[in-house]
């Protein structure tokens, strides 16, 4: 039994989303049929609206509907610190902590020849210009400890070397609430290497 064409098309579109298989797509499409016309209209509008309005901020490359973004225009944020992350999702994660009050810089990826991503495809040049223009004192690299992450950190470090700015990288170690006994060896040895005096 085939689905009637409009329904089949909707299922197909849902299935294109990441993490959605045929079964979930079907369930979502059937749910849409049960929703009120108004809700469906708002949903459709939200999709188009989001696509049309959300852009990369011209300064920090974070996703935002306004340019420059809310963080870059916020006067209460510390302009002498920039936190460098790979992806806009990382900004959201760090913002949730409410701990960090400086600016961000999104690289839009990591250096990876295998994926055809070189330094020129990232926003590293803009980072250099920003650091010079704003007179930034500290650059915090909040980048994953993968091979590609480590290479990117080395690269950024090399680019910023000549500037009077201190470059730090976030610490790696045990997650809070974790049990030493169950931590894997690599995490343990990294956290031993990064130990601090108490």
């Amino acid at each position: 039994m085939q689905f009637t064409p409009p329904l089949a098309r909707l299922i197909e579109h849902f299935q294109k989303l990441p993490g959605i298989g045929p079964k979930s797509a079907q369930r979502m499409a059937f749910h849409v049929l049960k929703m009120s016309t108004q809700d469906v209209g708002e949903f459709a509008f939200a999709l188009v609206d989001c696509k049309e309005k959300v852009r990369n901020c011209s300064q920090c490359y974070h996703l935002s509907a306004s340019d420059p973004c809310e963080i870059c225009t916020n006067d209460r944020r510390d302009r002498s610190t920039i936190c460098v992350v790979a992806d806009a999702k990382d900004v959201i994660a760090l913002e949730r902590t409410r701990e960090y009050r400086g600016l961000y810089h999104v690289l839009t990826g990591l250096i990876s020849p295998l994926e055809g991503k070189g330094p020129d495809d990232l926003t590293i040049r803009d980072l250099l210009l920003r650091v010079q223009k704003l007179g930034v004192k500290e650059v915090i690299l909040a980048i994953n400890p993968t091979i590609e992450g480590d290479a990117t950190v080395l690269y950024v470090q090399g680019i910023l070397k000549s500037l009077p700015v201190s470059i730090t990288r976030i610490a790696f170690g045990l997650p809070v609430g974790a049990d030493l006994e169950y931590a894997d060896d690599i995490t343990l040895s990294r956290s031993l290497a990064g130990r601090r005096e108490v």
Partner: peptide
């Protein structure tokens, strides 16, 4: 060799 390729090569070689 562009500057960024040179620098990138240095980074991967060091790692």
């Amino acid at each position: 060799l562009s500057d960024s390729d040179k620098e990138q090569l240095r980074v991967w070689s060091r790692q």
